[in-house]
């Protein structure tokens, strides 16, 4: 578990109003099993092998954020692609899920461009 990685959930906030809330629940429901799985994984399995990830946030946190922000399908692709990218030949660095709480915090600290030396992973 990386320092500073435990944040509040990045799930979209539930809107006010009865019907809007129902719509929100329907939209968010499919991603919840994945979210719960990733949370359990980070609590149970991640401590077993410690810090291995070349990127910040770690791949499991990235997957959690991806499922919370982007949903089930896009989240799966993003997490899978990230795991493939996280290999010994990669340079690592800072790589947030756009729209996550961690990214917002990062923008507060460094401004829109992220920390120096990190370059831009993808065009925003």
């Amino acid at each position: 578990m990386r320092p500073g990685e435990d944040t509040e959930s990045s799930l979209p906030a539930p809107p006010a109003g009865r019907s809007a809330r129902i719509g929100h629940v329907l939209r968010v429901a499919p991603r919840m099993p994945f979210v719960w799985f990733m949370r359990a994984y980070r609590v149970v399995i991640s401590p077993l092998y410690g810090d291995v990830c070349r990127y910040y946030p770690s791949c499991s946190k990235y997957a959690l954020d991806a499922f919370e922000v982007k949903g089930a399908v896009r989240g799966t692709f993003m997490a899978a692609w990230r795991v493939l990218r996280c290999n010994p030949f990669a340079r690592g660095g800072v790589d947030h899920v756009t729209g996550s709480v961690l990214e917002r915090r990062s923008a507060e600290i460094w401004g829109r461009d992220g920390p120096a030396n990190n370059g831009r992973m993808y065009k925003r």
Binding site: G4, E5, D51, V83, C86, P88, A90, N117
Partner: peptide
């Protein structure tokens, strides 16, 4: 905030030099 800032700066440094103390997830 400070912890996140430090880790991010550290990681950016690793990226710049193309090295890392971490083995990677794969």
């Amino acid at each position: 905030f400070s912890r996140q800032a430090m880790v991010e700066e550290q990681q950016a440094l690793f990226k710049k030099h193309g090295t890392s103390p971490f083995a990677s997830c794969l």
